[in-house]
Structure formats: C-alpha cells, structure tokens
Amino acid sequence: MKMHNAQAVVIGQVVSTNLYNLGRGVVCAIHGEQKSWSVRSLSGVVSYGGNATFDIAFESGHISRALPECILHDSQWRICEEIKRKEEVAHILQQAEDEERRKHREKEREEQQFRDECLRMKSASEYAALSQDKKGAVQVTGNIRKELKAKFPGVKFSVRKRSYDSVSVNWTDGPTEEQVKEITSKYRDSYFDGMQDMSVSCSSAFNQVYGGVGYVFTDRDYSDAMKQQAIGILKIKYDHLLANEDVSVARFNSGDLYRIRPDYFGHGYGIQGEINKILAVTAA
C-alpha cells in the first residue's frame, strides 16, 4: 500500500497523461476540499481516497470534468510544477470548449444523416422483398435466404440460425464465397476486437431496417464434378510439374495430394492447396 504526500493542486497547474491521447492539460476548476494525504494505491493498480474533483482542459481540445483526486495522483498522471497564468488558462479552456462544441455539432449531423439513411433504406426498391420486422437472427436468416435466391437462382442454399447472434450459410458449387459475402456482409452489425477484448458495434442503416447479427458464417462445399474441373485447370497450367502423377478426385478427397510438389506450391500444401485455391475463385 502506497501513501501519497503531494502538495495541493492549484488552478492553472499543468498536468499530463498518456491516457486516451489526452496529453498536456491545465486545471481550470477545483471542486471540494483537497485531501491528497489520504490518497493511496494498492500495488500501483487501484487508487482510492482523496476528496476533491478537478476540471481539466487539454491542449488537444478535450475536457475532463470532475476527475477524482485519487485518479489525478495516480501513476498514469503527472502533475507538473508549471502553473499557467489566468489568461492562459482561459485561452486553453476556450479552445477546448470550442472543440467540444464542434464535435457535438458533428455528432448531431452524423446522427441526422444516419436517421435519413434509415428512412431511405425503408423505401429502397432493391430491398422491397425483405422483411423489416425486428426479429434478430430470425429476420436476418429470412432476408439472406431471399437475397441469395434472387441473386443465384437454381443454387440451393442452407441458411440457418445458429444462435441469437449468428447465422450460417452453406451451399455446394454455385457462386464463390466472395460473391455470397457481397450479400451476407451487409447483415453483420458487430465484430470482436481482440485488442479491447470486447464486441464492437459496426451497425449500419441497413442493419437497423433489415436486421443484423454479430456473425454470418459462410461455407461452400464442392461436388466431385467441380473438383474434377479444378483438377483439369491445374493440369493445363502445371502439367510440366506433375511428372505423370495420379492427380485424381479420390486422392484429393483423401487429402493425399499435398504430397505432390510441396517444394513448388508451399510446404505442407502441395497441389492439394493449389486445387483449393482454384476452387475458391471458380464459380460453377
């Protein structure tokens, strides 16, 4: 347990932090009686104590209001000896408030544009056949099924709800995964950010009207006829490398073709991997 014996902070005191890219700032208001002597930290991680709160205007254009005293004395903050004059404090505060108002106006404008786009989506003729009912993954499943049927007539798709927040799409031959994802990607409204270890929203006006889920899984299977077609393309392009090898669908299905020319097509992949590449970009 660490105890702090810092002197009282005054208005105009320069402080700085690397948190949220705030940088240097100046204390422009103090609320309550300071008790810096009561600030403590546990293992340098959790700080508590203190009594006052501080308003800080940053040169970067941000304003932090009612920052607790224990946070200001935390190791992630630095209290500098420099003290700004009253006029300098007023100037920095004015700039930060102007920037705050600008960001507020920009946010309002973006929100209005989003609302306008939602209204446009509701009457968009290209999506007239889609459901606008708010039914989560059920709505998404139905709408994806309708779009795929219209875009790729004759191809049988299996579109299923996997959970409240995920849908899977499976089919054989037909369009490539990239072609299908041109449709399904519109329905994704969030993604997992590994750096923050949390789900992050990427919702769109389309999602608001026609539904969205966090995950849309696509999985394309291939018939033996499609595999034979890919093998034919491979033989035309790389016949000089195959040395009369038996390149067959049966060996491809067993996964045995990775043994052939891994030196040329990549260690551990061989022509098995090359055939998979051909299949991925070939539409039936």
Results as ranks from 00 to 15, higher is better:
Lys2Glu: 15
Lys2Met: 15
His4Val: 12
Val10Cys: 05
Val10Ile: 10
Asn21Gln: 11
Leu22Arg: 09
Gly25Ser: 01
Val27Lys: 02
Ala29Ser: 10
Ala29Gln: 10
Ile30Lys: 06
His31Met: 08
Lys35Asn: 14
Ser43Gly: 13
Gly44Phe: 10
Gly44Asp: 09
Ser47Leu: 05
Ser47Thr: 15
Asn51Arg: 05
Thr53Pro: 05
Asp55Met: 02
Ile56Thr: 01
Ser60Val: 07
His62Leu: 00
Arg65Asp: 07
Cys70Pro: 07
Ile71Cys: 08
Leu72Met: 08
His73Glu: 03
Trp77Pro: 04
Arg78Ala: 02
Glu81Gln: 13
Glu82Asp: 12
Lys86Tyr: 08
Glu87Ala: 12
Glu87Gln: 13
His91Thr: 14
His91Phe: 10
Glu97Met: 13
Glu100Thr: 13
Glu100Tyr: 00
Arg105Met: 11
Arg105Leu: 11
Gln112Leu: 13
Arg115Gln: 14
Leu119Pro: 00
Leu119Asp: 14
Met121Tyr: 00
Met121Phe: 00
Lys122Trp: 04
Ser125Gln: 09
Glu126Ser: 08
Ala128Gln: 08
Ser131Tyr: 01
Gln132Val: 04
Asp133Cys: 11
Lys135Tyr: 03
Gly136Asp: 07
Ala137Asp: 04
Val138Phe: 10
Gln139Phe: 04
Gly142Leu: 07
Gly142Val: 00
Asn143Gln: 03
Lys146Arg: 09
Glu147Leu: 14
Leu148Tyr: 05
Ala150Thr: 09
Ala150Ile: 11
Ala150Gln: 12
Val155Tyr: 03
Lys156His: 11
Ser158Met: 12
Ser158Val: 07
Arg160Asp: 12
Tyr164Trp: 03
Ser168Asp: 10
Val169Met: 04
Lys181Thr: 15
Glu182Asp: 12
Thr184His: 05
Ser185Val: 07
Lys186Phe: 11
Tyr187Ile: 07
Asp189Glu: 12
Gly194Gln: 08
Gly194His: 06
Met195Trp: 12
Asp197Gln: 13
Cys202Arg: 10
Gly212Arg: 06
Val213Ile: 06
Thr218Gly: 03
Arg220Leu: 09
Asp221Gln: 14
Asp224Ser: 07
Ile231Leu: 06
Gly232Ala: 15
Asp239Pro: 08
Leu241Gln: 08
Leu241Tyr: 00
Leu241Met: 13
Ala243His: 12
Ala243Asp: 15
Ala243Lys: 09
Asn244Met: 12
Glu245Met: 12
Val249Met: 01
Val249Gln: 08
Gly255Lys: 08
Asp256Cys: 11
Tyr258Met: 14
Arg259Gln: 15
Arg259Glu: 15
Asp263Pro: 03
Asp263Trp: 11
Tyr264His: 07
Gln272Trp: 07
Glu274Val: 14
Lys277Gln: 14
Ile278Phe: 01
Ala280Ser: 14
